[in-house]
Design a protein around this nucleic acid. Structure first.
Lengths: 232, 232
DNA sequence: GTCGATATTTGAACACGTTCAAGTTGGGGG
DNA sequence: CCCCCAACTTGAACGTGTTCAAATATCGAC
């Protein structure tokens, strides 16, 4: 009853210099073709041919076509962390930090918008290791959550102490929502996503501030309880 | 640069009694096999063989394997509307109505959880006509939003008049989020999703009520402005 | 009843992702 | 210098979704 034949086995890391070189060659070729033609229209045969290797060789390093996407995912994540760094070093205002980190993510993603949609389709599969909620993604996911923890800790924001430990994960969730919106965003240059960020960040900022208000305490508590109940 | 070769042409509706019968036969067979073996492991050849027709015949009525999923989608949607009806006729409390409608959706979906994941993968593709945000889904989407409008209008809830016109769509969005959670929910019987509904509904109810409060007016206004800005 | 048009049905052929048994290569130990 | 083994490379073959030209069935007009 389980679906989707399990993606083939493990790593595929090169162990020699020659191998590493081939691996990189295939990867670069694939990324170029994905960008040029889109994911679906790039065949494994085409990648192999353009890279000047046999199709089986591509499978030696990347167990499947999806694995190539995994590589894109990792690369993007690293670039995001790097792009967010200057913002975190510069700003101390919570809203500015959050907006900066979110805009940085979209900056990094923008050149790949067209084929990122295909990437998204694969990641959406709940059983896929590429899903942001999968155990296999635990590493990158935690790195991402840590980033939002830093958004918070480095800021001057005053937060309800009960809410604080949960906030990084909630911000990460908002980040996922933003990316989701971006994937579906058909406006030129994904301008709508920028609007979303610019509108949502002050809103989040205000809500976080208000969470300490007496009238809202019960609501805050209610949210925290829900998060706790869902986390196990 | 556009991805995914466009799904083949239009309808495929039968125009004769004979055709309609064949169409139904193929559809029932497909649904049975999907449930028995999962989506990925059910081949078009198997469907055709079990239904006793040629593989090309299945393609005559359903332009692609994904189209068969479309049919599942429509069917589920109809069942949801039907399952929600008694609740709406019975309850007048906003929270009870909302919880009832959401639980009804999960009730309808539960038997298909295993293969609904595959369905979801397809629907996630932004360019797919099955995406809940696609123009092709406008009909079913509106029907769904109307359902949440009825959740509201039939209730005794007092809502900020500025917020009210936007609330059905926001509730629909929350519904989409719930389904998203359900798809990824691996807990036995998707019990976690029930927890989510039972926790989120009172929260939403309270927030809706609080939206009329003086301190929260600016926040409410801010949300409305954002929704407006994103809607065009 | 016969004919033509339209609806339906067929299955071989194609393109693509993936597998795998059979090579080839390169370098470290003798 | 040669041998051996693991690392790497190859491409034919398989299963699958999809297409399409050709065959067949149905029905209303005459």
């Amino acid at each position: 009853m389980t679906d989707q034949p399990v993606p083939t086995t493990a790593a595929g890391e090169a162990t020699t210099a020659r191998g590493e070189q081939t691996r990189q060659l295939i990867l670069e070729t694939a990324m170029r073709l994905f960008r040029e033609r889109g994911y679906a229209r790039t065949t494994m045969r085409a990648i192999a041919q353009e890279a000047g290797v046999a199709v089986g060789n591509a499978y030696y390093y990347f167990g499947s076509k999806e694995r190539l996407i995994q590589e894109f995912y990792n690369r993007t994540q690293r670039e995001h962390l790097a792009a967010a760094r200057p913002v975190l070093d510069r700003e101390s205002d919570f809203a500015a930090r959050l907006a900066g980190v979110l805009h940085a993510a979209i900056d990094v993603l923008t050149p790949s918008h067209d084929f990122a949609a295909s990437f998204f389709k694969v990641a959406a599969e709940p059983s896929s290791p590429l899903s942001p909620f999968s155990p296999e993604s635990a590493g990158p996911r935690q790195a991402s959550i840590d980033l939002f923890a830093e958004v918070l800790t480095g800021s001057t924001a005053k937060v309800d102490p009960e809410l604080r430990p949960h906030l990084p994960e909630l911000l990460w969730l908002a980040y996922m929502g933003t990316v989701l919106y971006w994937v579906y965003d058909r406006s030129p240059g994904q301008a709508r996503t920028r609007t979303l960020i610019n509108g949502a960040v002050p809103l989040i900022d205000r809500l976080v501030t208000l969470s300490r208000l007496r009238v809202l305490r019960p609501v805050t508590r209610q949210i925290i309880d829900l998060v706790r109940a869902l986390r196990h």
